[in-house]
Design a protein around this nucleic acid. Structure first.
Length: 476
RNA sequence: GCCGCCAUCGUCUAGGGGACUAGGACGCCGCCCUCUCACGGCGGUAACACGGGUUCGAAUCCCGUUGGCGGUACCA
């Protein structure tokens, strides 16, 4: 199979585009075929190099690679003109000065059952001549046959008056030249397909690619927002960049996107990328439009985060924070400096960030969840007045004092020794565990939610823990 | 308006004439685990849009209605 992904650089890569890219990529890898990347920039007004870069970035982040290209459609203008001239010479296309208004007027006069047919002029835009009779049938790999009656089709404009070609023409010629065997794209292109098929037929009639079979088309169901409307910023993430910045892992995004409009057939939902490659086929692509629902993506992302080895997760977390949170990045950098100052045993210090990651990861679903939960290991905790009032009243402070004493007297602080010491405080005070642990949590973490209290104390270290307890006692 | 696509729990889906008292996953609810939050485990809630056919039998096939979406550019 030879496939292609052909985005138009008129904006960032949206989630729907990413899904199209993914499906093409999966098909190419599954079939051990090739994926061609083509940039459809024939609209020079709206296409920018920034957008091209952004799209390539998004594909790289998703780890979707391509075998050929990027081919810029604009760079193929000479070839397009040549093909256009061939169609013109053979009478499959003609120049016409007819405007959109003229077309409307034509239809008003002739009724809806007659597509626009122009008279050749000496100049003007180029229109493809659509046969009056018959129909073009699109054989779609996911939808079956769709019949487009020629009487309903207007002669489409395939090139501007200045000779520059338009989308439906350029696409057909480029697919032909690139020997694309399968055109897999969004359903919004279904009604373009007969036009492209007509271009292809005309091109073959004049000897262009006559030896090659027409590509198989497959139109993917569209993606909508949670409310069923068009996906937009209003729904949270709408572009791949936004997904990245929201703290999702590319492998989780691939897994989730694959499930939108495709299913393995059994009840599997967690499918690694190799499994997707192994199992993906066009035959199982759905015809129903799907809604992009971030809830399920969050869940999946959590699973992938927990499956990552701790050092790898730590690496990604660090990269993420460097990209999105200067404060956090700076704090982490300073932690590393401390480590090098050798004030503590290198091993323990070196693992500090990784240890924080290890005790946090079952509590977070995205990379973005980490810092709010565990940033207190690296920076001064935020103040949370309601939490203080609830847990650092008279009883809470007494419990906190007891905890302080127990920790101060302890030998080495490990999860086990801390647990022993604090459990003894609970037993001595004859209270529920939380009556000791929550005040302590508020004191060291700032709020009522954090990783396990024993692990947290052990990681924070005695000096810092005692300092924060003292500060909480003084302030409360 | 015209052309076209689509129609199963709130969401993603399984299902392609009898195996369906319609299965799974997310979410939600409850219980268990528990130092918070989670993770994990167990259980529960919840759907074949409607109306006609065809058939011994329809979620599955056909037609219509309704609804959603796409297209209808000298955009892609």
């Amino acid at each position: 199979m030879r496939l292609r992904f052909a985005p138009s650089p008129t904006g960032a890569l949206h989630i729907g585009g990413a899904r199209t890219a993914l499906f093409n990529w999966l098909l190419a890898r599954h079939s051990r075929g090739a994926l061609v990347l083509r940039i459809e920039d024939t609209d020079r007004e709206r296409s920018t190099t920034e957008n091209v870069e952004q799209i390539l970035d998004a594909l790289r982040w998703l780890d979707l690679d391509w075998d050929e290209g990027p081919i810029f459609q604009s760079a193929r203008a000479a070839r397009h003109r040549e093909a256009l001239q061939a169609l013109l010479d053979a009478g499959h296309a003609y120049r016409s000065r007819a405007t959109a208004e003229d077309v409307k007027e034509f239809k008003r006069r002739h009724g809806a059952d007659r597509g626009f047919r122009g008279e050749p002029d000496s100049d003007g835009a180029v229109r493809l001549r659509v046969p009056d009779e018959g129909a073009t049938i699109v054989h779609d790999a996911v939808r079956g046959q769709t019949r487009f009656e020629h009487v309903h089709l207007d002669d489409p404009v395939i090139a501007r008056a200045d000779g520059s070609v338009l989308y439906n023409f350029a696409v057909a010629i480029d697919d032909l030249d690139a020997r694309i065997t399968h055109v897999v794209r969004g359903e919004d292109h279904l009604s373009n397909t007969p036009k492209q098929l007509l271009v292809l037929e005309a091109a073959r009639a004049v000897g262009l690619g006559a030896d090659r079979p027409l590509p198989v088309y497959a139109h993917l169901p569209l993606l909508h927002g949670p409310d069923g409307k068009k996906l937009s910023k209003r729904h949270g993430a709408a572009s791949v960049q936004e997904l990245r910045d929201a703290g999702y892992l590319p492998e989780a995004v691939r897994n989730y996107l694959a499930l939108l409009g495709w299913g393995a057939g059994d009840d599997e939902t967690v499918l690694s990328t190799p499994e997707l490659v192994e199992r993906f086929t066009l035959g199982r692509v759905s015809r129903n439009p799907a809604r992009f629902d971030e809830t399920k993506l969050r869940w999946l992302n959590g699973i992938y985060m927990r499956e990552l080895p701790i050092p790898e997760l730590a690496r990604r977390l660090k990269a993420f924070l460097e990209l999105t949170d200067p404060t956090a990045a700076k704090a982490l950098a300073e932690t590393e400096t401390d480590r090098r100052s050798a004030e503590r045993p290198p091993k323990a210090a070196g693992d500090r960030f990784e240890r924080a990651v290890a005790i946090s990861r079952e509590k977070i679903q995205t990379l973005d969840d980490f810092w709010p939960l565990s940033g207190f290991f690296f920076i001064e905790p935020a103040d949370d007045p309601p939490a203080r009032e609830r847990w650092l009243g008279e009883d809470g402070r007494r419990a906190l004092s007891d905890a302080r004493a127990a920790l101060e007297d302890l030998g080495e602080l490990t999860e086990t020794t801390v647990a022993g010491a604090l459990e003894a405080v609970v037993a001595r005070r004859r209270v529920k565990p939380r009556e000791v642990y929550q005040p302590l949590r508020v004191a060291i973490a700032g709020g009522t939610v954090s990783p396990g209290i024993f692990e947290s104390v052990a990681l924070l270290g005695r000096a810092e823990t005692l300092r924060r307890i003292d500060r909480a006692l003084a302030r409360a």
